[in-house]
Design a protein around this nucleic acid. Structure first.
Length: 480
DNA sequence: TCGTATACGAGAGCGTAGTT
DNA sequence: AACTACGCTCTCGTATACGA
């Protein structure tokens, strides 16, 4: 880094080779007492990369200099293309820092030959990624289970911890057993021990911004729980070392007792209901997702079906729909009118790590619930079985989009409307009704009719395979 | 009009360098 | 020694720009 007024320049290279222990890093100091016009020159030891830096006159002056330094790298080890690439990067970096007290700060992160020649089969990389994610999920689950266990062992009874589904800031609520009046919002975090010796450190990440909530920090492997008011933590990460003052201050022995104490301090920790908690997301898109879910759930409840959000986030299964003696794994989608194209569309794809975005497979979910929204309100809903989507090559083929065409959708061409006419068999219109109010009878009977058709397809599919299921579908589109 | 690519934001983490 | 910031991976989601 070169600072204004600094008398020396320190250039650092990450460790590229095994260094003898007595070498203290790969640091090279350059005296900045060069006569004007002459470049700063140096050769990095071990990697033998030479660097020259020309600073234009007046570069360190207070007034805004528009001139930029120039860089030149040379090396026997690395290709000219590689060196030129890093020269360009240095130049780009200097441009963004022009006028600031820091002239540049940069690590020349050349890959070692081992790193440069590393390659991995994408299937193996994918398997590694999936396994890592599974471990993280397991850890998250373990921290929650540990909290519940500790509550059971506590002296307090009549309370429970329930999980908040979706992408909410609150992971769970602490409330009276079976209550729907709401409770104390909790954020759970887990960490593994780091640091050597007999006093391990637990580092919890993303700890800021939980005002009004209680942070529950769990060291799963050690069976330790800390409780910290969210408002007391402004740091991005929060460390606790065993035996430190923080450890003593926040350590919880009786989980139930500690939670009840915070539960009673409603001024510091305002109570919220499960629904409110679900909608407490930072991102507009996540609120939209939850809002849509709640409306679809209310609509389906009007005919006796239960749509319950899946607790596991980052999964292709958003929720479970049960009713009529059956249970479906559901993928939910929401769609607004996109004004430039004047169309409702949903994306039919999932993320798959190194594989990028890939199509859903037909077995990822059983039923797609696609909501058509008007000003955030549910206007209509498509209930599309995955087998039907497969028949139209919308799943199990390639990542794609599906245009939703409700009967009243604006379509410039008549051909567009006929192309997507097959969807209408699975469409239910709310006809202006708004949930959670009870929809009119004809709307409910239409919903029941489509659900019945989905049941038939599901049953036929289980017995005879996809082809029969599609022949048997028996739900003609109504006349709107 | 329609499909693809990209942007961005949320969640869950870990490792390491830097600062107090 | 204790504490914090930053950069990275993995997942999901919706919004939007752009070109054929």
């Amino acid at each position: 880094a070169i600072y204004e007024g600094s008398k020396e320049v320190t250039l650092e290279l990450p460790q590229l080779e095994q260094l003898p222990d007595d070498v203290l890093g790969q640091k090279l100091q350059l005296l900045l007492l060069q006569p004007a016009g002459l470049p700063l020159e140096a050769i990095f030891p071990y990697t033998k990369v030479g660097i020259k830096i020309w600073l234009p006159p007046g570069y360190l002056a207070d007034d805004d200099s528009t001139e930029l330094p120039s860089f030149e790298l040379n090396s026997q080890l690395y290709s000219p293309e590689c060196l030129q690439h890093f020269e360009e990067e240095l130049k780009t970096l200097a441009e963004t820092l022009c006028g600031s007290p820091v002239l540049f700060s940069w690590s020349l992160n050349f890959p070692s030959s081992a790193e440069a020649s590393f390659s991995e089969n994408t299937a193996i990389a994918r398997a590694r990624g999936v396994a890592a994610q599974r471990d993280r999920k397991r850890k998250e689950e373990e921290s929650f289970c540990h909290l519940q266990q500790r509550l059971l062992c506590s002296t307090v009874t009549g309370f429970e911890v329930v999980r908040v589904p979706g992408f909410s800031r609150a992971d769970a609520l602490f409330q009276r057993k079976g209550s729907s009046a709401g409770g104390l919002p909790l954020q759970l975090k887990a960490a593994s021990a780091s640091g050597l010796g007999d006093k391990p450190i637990f580092c919890f990440k993303k700890t800021a911004g939980y005002d009004g909530m209680l942070l529950i920090l769990v060291a799963v492997d050690y069976g330790i729980v800390w409780a910290v008011p969210g408002a007391a933590v402004t740091q991005q990460s929060f460390n606790i070392q065993l035996g430190s003052s923080r450890d003593e201050l926040f350590r919880v022995t009786d989980v139930g007792h500690a939670l009840v104490e915070c539960f009673r301090r409603a001024a510091d920790f305002p109570h919220i209901t499960l629904t409110q908690a679900g909608l407490r997301c930072e991102a507009r898109t996540h609120r939209l997702e939850m809002n849509t879910h709640l409306q679809m759930a209310a609509f389906l409840a009007s005919v006796g079906y239960i749509l319950k959000k899946n607790l596991e986030v980052a999964s292709a299964v958003d929720s479970m729909l049960s009713g009529g003696g059956k249970s479906w794994r559901v993928q939910e989608k929401a769609s607004h009118l996109h004004s430039p194209s004047n169309a409702y569309t949903i994306n039919l794809r999932k993320h798959a790590g190194v594989l990028g975005k890939v199509a859903y497979s037909a077995s990822d979910f059983d039923l797609l619930l696609a909501a058509v929204l008007q000003d955030g309100n549910l206007a209509g809903m498509f209930l599309l079985p995955s087998t039907v989507l497969g028949q139209h090559r919308l799943v199990g083929y390639k990542p794609t989009e599906l245009r939703l065409v409700p009967p009243w959708a604006p379509c410039a061409r008549h051909a567009t409307k006929t192309k997507y006419a097959w969807q209408l068999e699975y469409y239910v219109d709310l006809c202006g009704a708004s949930v959670p109010a009870m929809p009119p009878e004809h709307v409910r009977s239409r919903l029941a009719q489509v659900l019945q058709a989905v049941q038939y397809i599901w049953q036929a599919d289980e017995k005879n395979g996809v082809a029969t299921a599609l022949r048997k579908k028996s739900c003609p589109p109504p006349v709107y």
